[in-house]
Design a protein around this nucleic acid. Structure first.
Lengths: 186, 186
DNA sequence: TGGAGACTGTACCGATCGGTACAGCGAGTC
DNA sequence: GACTCGCTGTACCGATCGGTACAGTCTCCA
C-alpha cells in the first residue's frame, strides 16, 4: 500500500481539532480517520492504545505549548506588566480571538474528565501557580495573587463558552481587555 | 406490562442530569433508560423524536426555570442591588455551589451546538438583556451595562469550568463574590 | 363489563462504534 | 536483489448505537 510520510508531530494538531470540535466521545475513529487522511491501520500503528492515547498525547502537546509559550515567561519575567500583556496576546492568538475552543475545558466539562482528570488539573493549576507568581512579583499578597489568577483563568474559559454560545467573538476580545486590566489594578 | 406512573415533568430533571454529566453525544439511550428507569418503549412514547427531542425539552425547561426564577426579577425589580443579590443566590443554588455543571454551556461547547444553537443563543442573550436592564436602572450607561452583564455571564460559565477542572468548588464561590462586587462597582 | 387508549418491556433492525488482523507496499541496508 | 521493517488500507470482529414494532397490561369511562 501507499506510504504517505506521516509524522506524528503533524498528526497531533489535526487530532486536536477533531477532539475540540466533537469532544472526546463525539470524536469517532471514522471522523479522526477522515481528518488525518489515515486509515485505522496507521492510526493504531502510531497510537496502539487507541483513542484514549490520542487524546492524552494531544493534551500533552497542548500542555507543552502553554508551558513553553505562556507559563515559562510568567514564572521568570521580571516585568509583570509585560508578562501579563504577553500572556494575553498569546492566549488571544492561541484561541484565534475566540473562534477556537479550549480542549482542556471541553474535556473538563465532559464525562471523559475522569480519564484525564490529572492532566486537566495539572494544566490549570500550573497556569494558576505561574500567574500567581507573576502577581506576587508585582507586589500583591499571596491571597490576592491567587484570587486574581484564578479569576483570569476562569475569565478565559468563560469567554470562550459565551463567545461560542452567542456566536460573537467580540465578547472574547472584550473579556481579554477586562481581564488584563483587572489583573494589575491597584 | 407494568405501569409506573411516569410524569413527563418528573422525567425532564432526570434527563437533564444525564445530559449534564455525559454531554449530548455521550448520553446514550441505555444510560437514559437506566437513569429514568424507563424502557425505550416508554421513552419513545413520551419523546417520539428521540434523543434530540429529549435534549430540546430539557433545554426548554431550563430556560423556563431561569426565566421565572432569574430573568423576570432582573427585568422588573426596582432595587438593582437586591435583584443582583437574588440572581447570585439563585445561580449559586441552581449550580449547587459549583458542583453542578451548566448544560447550556456544555452544549454550546460541543458539536451538538449546531442542532440547538438558537435555543442556546436565546438563553444567554435573554439573560444578558435582562441583566443589562437592571444595570441601566442602577444608573450605568448602555455600553457599561452590556459589558458588565456579559462579564457576569462569562464569569459564571468560566467558574463552573474551572471549579470542575480543579475539582475545587471554592473557586466558584469566590467567583460569585467577585462577580457581584464587580457588577455594581462605581 | 367491555372497549379504548395510554403506557410498558422486549425483541429486533441496520448502522456504526472502537479495536484487531493481516497482507501489501516502499524505502532503506547489506 | 533478497531481507527487514515501518507504514499503509481493508476486511472483519463483537458490542453497542439510535430507533422501530408490537404485544401485553393498566386505568378510565361508558
Amino acid at each position: 500500500m501507499a506510504k504517505t510520510v506521516s509524522e506524528r508531530a503533524d498528526l497531533l494538531p489535526l487530532l486536536g481539532e477533531v477532539f475540540r470540535s466533537h469532544g472526546y466521545e463525539g470524536a469517532t475513529l471514522a471522523l479522526i480517520s477522515k481528518a488525518t487522511g489515515l486509515g485505522k491501520g496507521s492510526l493504531y500503528h502510531f497510537f496502539p492504545d487507541g483513542k484514549a492515547q490520542m487524546a492524552a498525547e494531544v493534551l500533552a502537546e497542548i500542555d507543552h505549548w502553554f508551558e513553553v509559550n505562556i507559563f515559562a515567561a510568567l514564572r521568570k519575567s521580571d516585568d509583570p506588566a509585560q508578562a501579563i500583556a504577553d500572556m494575553t496576546a498569546g492566549v488571544d492568538r492561541y484561541f484565534h480571538s475566540g473562534h477556537r475552543v479550549c480542549l482542556v475545558g471541553v474535556i473538563a466539562l465532559g464525562a471523559s474528565r475522569d480519564i484525564f482528570s490529572s492532566q486537566v488539573q495539572d494544566y490549570f493549576s500550573r497556569w494558576n501557580d505561574a500567574l500567581a507568581q507573576t502577581l506576587r512579583r508585582a507586589g500583591f499578597s499571596a491571597g490576592v495573587a491567587r484570587r486574581r489568577s484564578a479569576d483570569a483563568l476562569l475569565t478565559i474559559q468563560g469567554a470562550l463558552v459565551l463567545a461560542r454560545a452567542l456566536d460573537d467573538t467580540k465578547v472574547f476580545g472584550q473579556a481579554m481587555v477586562d481581564m488584563k486590566a483587572r489583573l494589575l489594578a491597584r
